[in-house]
Design a binder for these strands. Structure first.
Lengths: 151, 151
DNA sequence: CAAATTTCAGTTCCACTGAGATGG
DNA sequence: CCCATCTCAGTGAAACTGAAATTT
């Protein structure tokens, strides 16, 4: 007997906004991790570099809060960035419990390179949408996210 | 020294659609798993019941394809549904490699109950959006997802 | 003494892989 | 012989937990 098309998901799922968001997120995640893996980075590397470049030197605990990473994972990720010379760690003279983490000039250059790569990912993800539709999507999502974000 | 607000994510992230989608997906996932956990279900239970109710009795392999679940996980999830009397498994008389899985009347009743719960979740997730905005969001996401879905 | 930071080691959860048994 | 199915056991990654050491 011929193989039927037995891989279509049930319409109960496909009609739900939660499902659409989840599917879109899976696709976005794939594009993103794929693009970063191509240049030997992971998402949290970018998040850490972005936080350091925007807010300046910070403790590891503060970086964890900003990037929503676990304290243990921050340690490991910073080890890797340190090994590549993208960040520097130094003891905080004002609070010796802390390390002050600073982005290096190499780190800034790499961040710029990653910016370009991620911009291309945004473009690829939203290819079927017009510029105004992309803005509208972002605005709607931002309102949903803000509404469910506790302060 | 006063604690600064050191938990805001970098704008490099918050401005990216991939980030917004991912954040929205995390929120949606939380609402969904929370609501289902409240009545002792998991997402894949609903997906399996929905597939069975829409497409009729199916083999476990086919269910795995439809619900995008791993073959191993389908086995475990069906064991649970079977234990609760929501599905029945019987050997396929036409192909004895297969089990034919059928939803029971109890299963249908439970699916209805879950439908109501999930409808409430959609509503809660999209609370800040008007009906027409919700439709627009769904339409934009559907186009993005379709574009990145291989046939 | 209570709280915060860095770090390591261990746990838990999930998705997936491999392989055996059965059968088409 | 090759492929599909069901099942279980095991692997590996990711996020988190606990606790120790240090300092505020």
């Amino acid at each position: 007997m011929m193989a039927k098309n037995d891989d279509a998901p049930p319409s109960r799922l496909t009609s739900k906004q939660t499902w659409l968001i989840s599917q879109a997120s899976i696709r976005a995640h794939r594009l993103l991790t794929g693009a970063l893996a191509g240049v030997n980075y992971r998402g949290f590397h970018y998040r850490l570099l972005a936080a350091l470049e925007e807010f300046g030197p910070a403790s590891q605990a503060a970086l964890g809060r900003r990037t929503e990473m676990d304290r243990s994972d921050v340690v490991a990720a910073l080890n890797e960035l340190d090994d590549r010379g993208l960040v520097k760690r130094a003891p905080d003279p004002r609070d010796s419990r802390r390390n002050v983490v600073t982005i290096t000039s190499i780190g800034r250059a790499e961040l710029k390179r990653l910016d370009d790569i991620l911009a291309a990912v945004q473009d690829e993800l939203l290819e079927p949408l017009s510029p105004s539709e992309r803005r509208h999507l972002a605005e709607l999502l931002a309102r949903v996210v803000a509404h469910h974000t506790a302060d």
